[in-house]
């Protein structure tokens, strides 16, 4: 699967995360995170984002994330939505356990 257009998902509200995704020049998944809980959860948030991107099936991406204390379930949902939009994918597998 390939990124065809830059896309975003999420908001800057407290408890949410804003995910912006685009194809980068590197052959890897790059995550740049700004978080209100960076000291306590920064590493875990980056791991969650990375995991969700790979689970979606993308190998290359640059992700800018602005986090306002979102839970893991929210982060995964926002990453999946951004990936869907960036790849123009409309194969929603609603039954699949996210």
């Amino acid at each position: 699967m390939k990124i065809t257009t830059p896309a975003s998902a999420g908001t800057m509200e407290s408890g949410d995360i804003m995910i912006e995704i685009e194809s980068g020049e590197q052959q890897s998944v790059e995550v740049v995170l700004k978080s209100s809980v960076a000291n306590e959860f920064g590493k875990q948030i980056i791991a969650t984002i990375r995991g969700a991107v790979e689970e979606f099936g993308l190998e290359y991406a640059v992700i800018n994330a602005v986090d306002k204390g979102a839970l893991d379930c929210t982060i995964r949902a926002r990453v999946f939505a951004a990936c869907q939009r960036a790849t123009g994918s409309d194969a929603f597998d609603w039954g699949k356990r996210a």
């Binding site: 000291n39 306590e40 875990q44 839970l71």
Partner: peptide, 10 residues
Amino acid sequence: RITGKPDPLP
């Protein structure tokens, strides 16, 4: 369980 375990503060 919901939030994860916070890393120690610097």
